[in-house]
Amino acid sequence: MTHNEGGPRRDPAAEPGRAAEPPTADLAVLLARVARGDQVAYEEVYDQLAGPVLGMVRRVVRDLAQSEEVMQEVLLELWRTASRFDRDKGSAASWVMTIAHRRAIDRVRSEQKSAERELRAASAQIDYDEVTETVEATLDRERVRRCMGSLTELQRESVTLAYYGSYTYDEVAGLLGVATGTVKTRMRDGLIRLRDCLGVD
């Protein structure tokens, strides 16, 4: 990892004395500043979150133009509602990703009701390699991939179909040909295992 490229926030572990501080600790402080109308803090929040939000939304929505639209909506929503962020209810990153995921899912589900369904199927063939990934994303993806590997196949399929496929649990049950009760518990067990493996609380 190069030190020149990253800037101060990119690699906290490289700075002596700050090794244990995750970048998300920053984010909560920045959000508090954003809530007070601080546009410079908003720019930093944008820098930290636009990539993760777009990457996730794109896997759900598939179409790049629409994904960018959802990402911009989510980040504007963040500006508008920063004062509502409550750190007692979870990390800032988890708050934002939850908002973004719901938006993405809503977009897909509303579209599936409309005639654009065909279009979405056609645009699903995007080559993801065309987009450059960040260093953090590469490390993070490696860790998540390893932890996803510790799930049973049914757990992993249930989680992935729900999260990226935007299917509800009963649709997942239909796709996998198992009982809805089984899918519900597999999703929960899978996430618990993932949570423990990733070391989040």
Binding site: G51, P52, V53, L54, G55, M56, R58, R59, G90, S91, A93, S94, M97, T98, A100, H101, Y128, V131, T132, E133, T134, E136, A137, D140, R141, R143, V144, R145, M148, V159, Y163, L191, I192, L194, R195, L198, V200, D201
Partner: peptide, 12 residues
């Protein structure tokens, strides 16, 4: 937190 990490790992 766990699902958010799945999402963050897809960053572009």
């Amino acid at each position: 937190e766990a699902t958010a990490r799945i999402g963050v790992s897809a960053a572009v």
